[in-house]
């Protein structure tokens, strides 16, 4: 009888360890992860796009330490200046379900690194690769596309609304609209 009680506790404890897992050695500035992903669900041929994910994404977005680091860097690198606390401003909202350039963590890493045509600056070699992943993981948490246990709780600054952890699980709808102003008549 007691075993049945203890087992879940052990499982919880182990899960907690993974939740807090961290690397102490930072990537060199020149390092760059090489995920092979597509920007669209459509491909030539019926099988869907050919993609290869190394598993790095899961490591980051299921880890509270990485997400919380990402939250810090999100402000440090002025992401909040355009995207606010996820609701957006001059840049699009990040807490909603529409993703113009893909909403998987690999897409977001690529968006930060490469920039995007309608105003997103490129941060390649300005932010170390592992920190880009951490920011992307935090961005994923804004729409609660990360496990509840890993998502941030209430922050110390002005409350913009409920904390990431308290938001309902989100979804990712690919192919959100490019802002209409980008469509030039003529």
């Amino acid at each position: 009888m007691k075993v049945y009680l203890v087992l879940p506790l052990v499982a919880f404890a182990l899960a907690a360890c993974e939740r807090e897992d961290r690397e102490y050695r930072a990537n060199p500035m020149t390092a760059e992860s090489q995920e092979k992903i597509a920007l669209v669900p459509l491909s030539a041929g019926p099988s869907g796009p050919t993609e290869y994910r190394s598993g790095l994404g899961k490591e980051y977005e299921e880890n509270a330490f990485h997400i919380s680091q990402g939250q810090r860097f999100y402000t440090w690198f002025n992401c909040n200046g355009c995207h606010a606390n996820g609701g957006g401003g001059s840049g699009p909202a990040l807490m909603d379900d529409r993703w113009i350039y893909g909403g998987q963590i690999e897409n977001i890493v690529q968006t930060i690194r490469e920039g995007r045509p309608n105003g997103m600056p490129s941060f390649r070699r300005k932010i170390p690769d592992d920190q880009i992943w951490e920011i992307a993981a935090y961005v994923r948490s804004m729409g609660r596309n990360v496990p509840k246990a890993a998502a941030p709780g209430r922050k110390d600054d002005m409350s913009p609304g409920p904390a990431e952890q308290r938001r309902p699980p989100g979804q990712v709808i690919d192919g959100g609209q490019v802002p209409p102003s980008a469509q030039m008549p003529q």
Partner: peptide, 19 residues
């Protein structure tokens, strides 16, 4: 901006607080 930029009304600080 909340309409023209399709911002998320759940974040009160969006558009530098105007949302």
């Amino acid at each position: 901006a909340i309409v023209s930029g399709d911002l998320d009304p759940r974040d009160g600080t969006a558009a530098t607080g105007f949302v």
